[in-house]
């Protein structure tokens, strides 16, 4: 079963929930899909080793074959290739690697070379707990290919917990697109509520069953809870505002480790999710 942890707004506790849930379960894989700012590993006592580079095939021009006809740049919809009076220039950071320019070049002057935009790494020596992380290189704009490469490591026979990036744009869709269930983490503040509504729009559009976790539920107001009840959206868990939790978070310690009573609650959370998912399926 693939469970994504997402939120419209960043900083609501998405990573906290993903890590604590993964640590409370057995035979689990955890994926950090927030490849622009991956944080899960900071809460895990692990060593990372590189698994692979994430590459984008980028055009390379053979000057001796190119007659500067301009077809490649005319085709490219991302302005990644320009034909100047004397040469063809490629702007690698803009190239999506679609392969179009190679196809259209009438002189076979374009070949492709892999260009790394990020990496995938994982924890060393796992005993039942497998962690994969994607990391987008600094200055690279495109997160989605890294996320797509990361998700290829999902083992369908195990439970996969996916920490999604914040927001509602393409990297989020790539992360949550094909999951079985989505947990939306929010706060009971006007910002949290507003962004939760956006996130709900996303999961509804993708037709993914979902429930809500309200973090720091005792600050702000009750609008999130009232809304969920009125819309019959399951509230899967409520986490209080607690200086002890905040402090542990700041030190990079998952609170299930220090506050064992929470471990049972996360196991319960998983059971609830499974139940909700089965209901939604039938």
């Amino acid at each position: 079963m693939k469970i994504a942890i997402a939120s419209g707004k960043g900083g609501t506790g998405k990573t906290t929930v993903a890590v604590n849930l993964a640590l409370a379960l057995e035979n689990v894989q955890l994926f950090d899909c927030d490849v622009e700012e991956p944080n899960c590993h900071l809460f895990l006592d692990i060593d990372l080793e590189k698994v692979e580079d994430v590459n984008i095939p980028t055009p390379v021009i053979d000057k001796s074959k190119c007659d500067l006809c301009g077809k490649c740049s005319e085709f490219c919809r991302f302005n990644a290739i320009a034909v100047l009076p004397k040469e063809v220039m490629v702007f690698p950071a803009l190239c999506h690697g679609c392969g179009g320019c190679t196809l259209v070049c009438p002189n076979g002057a374009i070949s492709e070379e892999d260009r790394s935009i990020g990496i995938i790494d994982k924890n060393k020596g796992n005993d039942g707990f497998e962690f994969y992380r994607g990391l987008l290189d600094i200055g690279e704009p495109m997160a989605s290919p890294v996320i797509a490469a990361l998700k290829k490591h999902i083992d369908v026979d195990r439970t996969a917990i996916i920490d999604s990036p914040p927001g509602t744009a393409c990297p989020v869709i790539t992360s949550v697109g094909d999951v079985d269930y989505c947990v939306l983490v929010t706060e009971s503040t006007p910002f949290g509520f507003h962004d939760l509504l956006l996130a709900i729009d996303v999961v509804k559009t993708l037709e993914i069953p979902f429930g809500v976790i309200i973090n720091r539920y005792d600050i702000g107001d009750n609008s999130v809870e009232e809304y969920c009840i009125s819309q019959q959206i399951p509230i899967l868990m409520k986490i209080p505002h607690d200086m002890k939790i905040a402090r542990l978070y700041s030190e990079g310690i998952p609170f299930v480790v220090r506050m064992p009573e929470w471990k049972d609650r996360f196991v319960q959370l998983f059971d609830t999710i499974r139940h909700e998912y089965e209901e939604a399926r039938s």
Binding site: G10, G11, D34, E36, E37, L136, I138, G139, E140, P141, M142, A143, P165, P166, G167, A169, P171
Partner: peptide
């Protein structure tokens, strides 16, 4: 600005 380091931040 947006969160992250990718296209919208750039």
């Amino acid at each position: 600005g947006p969160p992250g380091t990718g296209c919208s931040v750039i």
